[in-house]
Simulated assay, not measured.
Amino acid sequence: MSKIMNVSALELLHHMKLTCQIPNVLEAIATRRIIAEAVKKAEITVEQKELQQAADSLRLANRLVKADDTWAWLQKHYLSLDDFEEIAQTNLLSAKLANHLFADQVEKFFVEHQLDFVGAITYEVVLDEEDLALELFYALQENEITFPEIARQYIQEPESRRTGGYHGIRYRRDFKPEIAAAVFAARPPQVLKPIITQTGVHLIWVEEVIKPQLNEQLRLKILGDLFSAWIKQQLEEVKVMAQLELDTQKLAKPA
Rank of each mutant, 00 (worst) to 15 (best):
L127E: 11
D131C: 08
A133M: 12
F137I: 14
F137N: 11
Y138E: 15
Y138G: 08
Y138C: 07
A139H: 14
L140F: 08
E144I: 09
I145T: 14
I145D: 03
I150F: 03
Q153M: 11
Q153E: 13
Q153W: 05
Y154P: 04
I155N: 02
I155K: 05
E159A: 09
E159N: 12
S160Y: 04
S160E: 10
S160H: 05
R161V: 01
R162G: 00
T163N: 04
T163L: 04
T163D: 00
G164L: 03
H167C: 01
G168S: 01
R170M: 13
R172M: 01
R172L: 05
P177V: 00
P177C: 00
I179H: 00
A180W: 03
A181V: 07
F184E: 10
F184N: 10
R187F: 08
R187P: 02
R187A: 08
P189M: 12
P194G: 11
T197F: 03
G200I: 03
L203C: 08
I204C: 01
I204N: 02
W205F: 15
V206Y: 09
V206A: 10
E208F: 11
K211V: 05
Q213G: 04
L214D: 06
E216Y: 09
Q217V: 13
L218Q: 12
L218R: 11
L220H: 13
L220E: 14
G224Y: 02
L226I: 10
W230I: 00
W230N: 01
I231K: 04
I231C: 02
E236V: 00
V238L: 06
A242R: 05
A242W: 05
Q243V: 06
L246K: 07
Q249K: 13
Q249W: 10
A252N: 08
